[in-house]
Design a protein around this nucleic acid. Structure first.
Lengths: 120, 120
DNA sequence: TAGAATAGAAGAGTTTACTCTATAGTTGCC
DNA sequence: GGCAACTATAGAGTAAACTCTTCTATTCTA
């Protein structure tokens, strides 16, 4: 599919997709047979990657970190050991985020009960 | 205490503290009796606020959201109803973040087991 | 009382992650 | 064949959250 369809499939703007491509997170392919244009074609794996990018951004991963994740998963760039090390690293940072959010939840629940009981 | 001590107590740079002050999150007080300078003095509550700002940033809240939180909690700016509405709103967004992180954790665990079993 | 350290104000610069604009070539359709 | 719609590339602009620089004034210390 071309970029317009990819944009519609993922809900990401064409600009954003091009930005991710420039950032090395995804890569379209030119059809060798076609000589008249430079149109890039995208496959289903790219749709998957863009969904991963979207979700990973939600949990606070940076473009750089998402790049590592994609390299560890989709691209044959790393050894098994490197892949596991990256994934382990991301798991640890997720655990950390989980703890931070739980702590903040406790704090806000405390705030809330104080407000309810007119303690502030 | 003056800004230098506040910086040391919180681990935040003087620049960052001044940025938060300009953003309306904290406010030092000038001593009325002193006419020769414009030095701002900070109290223990400011230390608490800066710790809250630090923690709230970790869970992804923006300066604006943290401002709301501080208003709801420390400043007498809101009614009880408004305070509860802000706190409820923040709790909901924390629940959402919690779900997103748990989902991402599952995904990465799946990646990991696939790598371990040479399924990619 | 000189000099070093600290405080404040104003504004420029940086990074991240887009978002938009301008330009130019290509394709699809009546 | 003409023109709207689509594609690519390059680069400018934006917003958030700092971070740094410059300048001036004040205070502390030997």
């Amino acid at each position: 599919m071309l970029i317009n369809e990819l944009s519609k499939r993922t809900g990401l703007s064409i600009h954003t997709i091009r930005f991710y491509e420039k950032s090395g997170l995804i890569a379209g392919k030119r059809e060798e047979s076609v000589k008249t244009n430079k149109y890039l074609h995208y496959d289903e794996v790219t749709v998957e990657k863009l969904e991963l990018i979207h979700d990973a951004k939600l949990v606070g991963f940076t473009i750089k970190e998402i790049g590592q994740l994609i390299d560890a998963w989709y691209n044959g760039k790393c050894t098994k050991k490197q892949k596991l090390s990256i994934l382990e690293d991301k798991l640890l940072s997720l655990e950390q985020k989980l703890r931070e959010i739980k702590d903040m939840k406790k704090l806000i629940l405390q705030f809330k009960s104080d407000v309810i009981n007119d303690r502030c």
